[in-house]
């Protein structure tokens, strides 16, 4: 009775498991749509994002302007799509930078005992500040460009990743295969790269989606408070901030970007939950 080994790539298997959960599949669909919109913005939107039409300012949603126009007569749908571009760019970059730095710090703190105390106290100090406050303070010190926003938000999120990674490393390093690798004469760097890192991918992927969501939300909050990207850049937070004055006459101005933020962030959260369940079959079985 020869057992047949079916070669399925782990990525494909994960996708399959993920898509079996309806909510996660829906979330993925929304995100793909947002991503496509963001990437293809210049080709799919009906107007230029800065084009003003004073005659049709604050126009209600119509066939010409599906989501209406703002106080300068700019097309809201166009600006929402361009805003998606910015949100995804910021979210994606923050996710990459924060998970990268967090992974490195977490690995070092968890595996190199000498560094643990120092690194964790620093992360504690950073996490002691409320997210927004820390981000605003950093923005004030850095400046208002896109890169500055990314740096500020990554600084806010990195300690979280570092904490999660360190926790996972603390568990892993007590497993015997780590000790066995050390007994084979492997260097610290090698143990971290070959034996710890691959076993950290699952928690890291899940954490990354949550950071993506948090970054989008915080970026919007920063823009709303005027501490984010310059107000001329179409961003969801900027749009909501500008819409405050006209909320009573033109509620679509606030609803459109608000719903865009809600859908994107919610989808990311749902996707993160779905990924967590798909990556850990045992947990899923327990929950049923």
């Amino acid at each position: 009775m020869a057992r047949v080994t079916v070669a399925v790539s782990p990525g494909l298997l994960l996708l399959h498991r993920l898509l079996r959960r309806r909510l996660a599949a829906a979330a993925l669909l929304v995100l793909v749509a947002v991503l496509a919109g963001g990437l293809l913005a210049p080709w799919i939107v009906p107007y230029a994002p800065q084009r003003m039409d004073i005659l049709h300012r604050l126009a209600a949603p119509s066939r010409l302007h599906w989501l209406g126009t703002d106080e300068f007569g700019r097309d809201v749908l166009t600006r929402i799509v361009y805003g998606a571009r910015l949100s995804l760019l910021v979210g994606g970059l923050v996710m990459l930078v924060a998970t990268g730095c967090g992974l490195l710090l977490g690995l070092l703190a968890g595996y190199v005992r000498r560094l643990d105390g120092v690194l964790m106290r620093v992360t504690d100090a950073l996490m002691a500040f409320p997210d927004i406050l820390l981000a605003i303070a950093l923005m004030a010190a850095l400046g208002p460009s896109l890169i500055d926003v990314v740096v500020a938000l990554a600084t806010v999120q990195t300690p979280r990743v570092a904490r999660v990674v360190r926790g996972a490393v603390l568990v892993l390093r007590e497993l015997q295969f780590v000790e066995a690798a050390e007994a084979l004469g492997a260097t610290d760097a090698r143990v971290m790269r070959v034996h710890l890192l691959p076993n950290l991918i699952s928690p890291l992927v899940v954490q990354a989606t949550f950071i993506f969501a948090a970054a989008i939300l915080t970026e919007a909050a920063l823009s709303f408070l005027g501490a984010g990207v310059p107000p001329t850049v179409p961003s969801w937070g900027n749009m909501i901030a500008a819409a405050q004055l006209y909320m009573q006459q033109a509620d679509w101005l606030i609803l459109a970007p608000g719903i865009a933020i809600l859908l994107t962030v919610l989808s990311l959260q749902v996707l993160g939950d779905g990924l967590r369940d798909a990556l850990d079959p045992r947990l899923r079985r327990l929950m049923r």
Binding site: L175, Q176, F177, A180, A181, A183, V194, H195, P198, N199
Partner: peptide, 14 residues
């Protein structure tokens, strides 16, 4: 060195 616990002595991902 050979360890006690063969179930966890091997890295599950290699």
């Amino acid at each position: 060195m050979v360890f006690q616990e063969p179930m966890s002595s091997l890295n599950p991902l290699l």
